[in-house]
Design a protein around this nucleic acid. Structure first.
Length: 319
DNA sequence: CGGATTTGACCGGCGC
DNA sequence: GCGCCGGTCAAATCCG
C-alpha cells in the first residue's frame, strides 16, 4: 500500500483540528477528522475508485486513532510531570517562605521583644532569638515540623477587617488584644481540609496601621484550593482519564484571589492589598505563577501547543 | 437552617 | 503561689 503518501496531509489536518479544539474527545476527533479528510482527498488526488477510497479512509481512521492514542499517552506523561513539578514548586515555595523552623508555642518573650521594634524589617526569622533555652526544655515539643512564615499585606487605611486573601480558606476562631500592639490580633485555622493543621495570625503592624502582618504556622496538607475553586476545571483535560487537576471531595469553596485586582475600588468589605512593598510584590508574583499553572485554559493551550510541536517533530523524523 | 463569626471564659506557660 | 499574658474553646449570634 502506498497510501502512506497521503499521511502527511492527514497529519497536518490532524494537528490543526487538535489546535482548534484541544479538549475534543477522541471519538469526536476521529469523526470530525474523517469528515474533513474527504474533500481534501478529492482535491489533491486523482479520484481513486470507491473501494480504494474506502480502504484508505479506514486505514486513515486507524492511523488517526493511533495518533490520538499516542497523544493521550504524551498528555499522560506531561500531566504527570506537571503534577510532579507543581508539587516541587509548592514545596519549594513553602520552604523558601521562611528559612527557619522553630517551636511556635513558646515564643512569647522573643516575639514581644522583636515586635517592639520594626517588624516590617525582615521576613521570617523574627521569633528565632533564643532557641537554646527551648532546646534545653523538655522535648515534648516536637512540633518542630511546624513552619512559620510571615506575610505583609498593605491595605486601605480605613479598612478595619483583618483579612488577608491568600487563596486558602480560613475560619476565624479567636481574637485578642495583645499587650505590645493596641490593634487586635485575629486567629484563623485553615478550614479547607478538616485535618489541615495550618494556623494563621493576622495583626496590624504597630508601625504602619495600613500593613497587615499575617503569621502562618504549619504546612498545608492539601493542594491549593484555588485549583478546585475554578469553575469547570474538572472537565478540562480529562484526556485518557488523566486527572490533571488534583481532586478533593469537597464542594468548591468560593476563593477570591486578590492578584487580579491591582487597582483599588472603594470596597470596604474586602481588603485590597497594594503592591507597594517588595514582600507583597513577591507574594503576588508567586500567586500569579501558581494561578497560571492551575488555569485550565492556560493548561489546555499549553498542551495544544506542545502536542502540535511534538507531532511536527515526529513527522519530520518518521515520515 | 447550616456555616461562619464574635466574644467572654478558660487554660497553660512564664516571671516575679 | 499568684498574676499576667497569649492562645484556644465554645456558646451565642449573625448571615446568606
Amino acid at each position: 500500500m502506498d497510501y502512506s503518501s497521503w499521511v502527511d496531509t492527514s497529519l497536518d489536518l490532524n494537528i490543526s483540528s487538535i489546535r482548534v479544539k484541544s479538549e475534543a474527545p477522541v471519538d469526536a476527533g476521529r469523526s470530525g477528522m474523517a469528515k474533513e479528510l474527504k474533500p481534501t482527498f478529492m482535491d489533491f488526488q486523482t479520484k481513486p475508485s470507491s473501494k480504494e477510497e474506502t480502504g484508505a479512509l479506514v486505514e486513515e481512521l486507524n492511523r488517526v486513532g493511533e495518533e490520538n492514542r499516542k497523544l493521550t499517552e504524551m498528555l499522560t506523561v506531561m500531566c504527570e510531570s506537571y503534577n510532579a513539578l507543581r508539587g516541587q514548586l509548592m514545596d519549594y515555595m513553602s520552604k523558601n517562605g521562611e528559612k527557619d523552623r522553630l517551636a511556635p508555642s513558646k515564643k512569647r518573650k522573643s516575639e514581644s521583644s522583636h515586635n517592639n521594634n520594626n517588624n516590617i524589617a525582615m521576613n521570617g526569622n523574627s521569633e528565632s532569638s533564643s532557641t537554646d533555652e527551648e532546646s534545653s526544655k523538655k522535648p515534648r515539643e516536637e512540633i518542630i515540623k511546624d513552619k512559620i512564615s510571615k506575610a505583609y499585606v498593605r491595605t486601605e487605611a480605613g479598612d478595619t477587617s483583618l483579612t488577608v486573601k491568600d487563596g486558602y480558606q480560613w475560619r476565624k476562631y479567636g481574637q485578642k488584644v495583645t499587650r505590645d500592639n493596641p490593634s487586635p490580633r485575629a486567629y484563623f485555622k485553615c478550614s479547607f481540609a478538616p485535618s489541615c493543621p495550618v494556623k494563621k495570625k493576622v495583626q496590624r503592624s504597630i508601625d504602619d496601621q495600613s500593613v497587615l502582618v499575617a503569621t502562618y504556622e504549619g504546612e498545608h496538607n492539601h493542594p491549593h484550593p484555588s485549583m478546585e475553586a475554578t469553575p469547570g476545571s474538572n472537565r478540562s483535560l480529562t484526556l485518557g482519564s488523566v486527572p490533571c487537576t488534583a481532586s478533593l471531595a469537597s464542594s468548591g469553596p468560593t476563593i477570591t484571589l486578590d492578584l487580579t485586582k491591582p487597582k483599588s475600588s472603594n470596597d470596604d468589605k474586602s481588603s485590597k492589598p497594594r503592591t507597594d512593598t517588595p514582600e507583597v510584590r513577591k507574594f503576588l508574583v508567586e500567586q500569579m505563577a501558581s494561578s497560571l499553572t492551575k488555569d485550565p485554559n492556560f493548561t489546555a493551550a499549553l498542551v495544544a501547543a506542545i502536542s502540535g510541536r511534538m507531532f511536527q517533530q515526529n513527522n519530520s523524523e518518521k515520515w
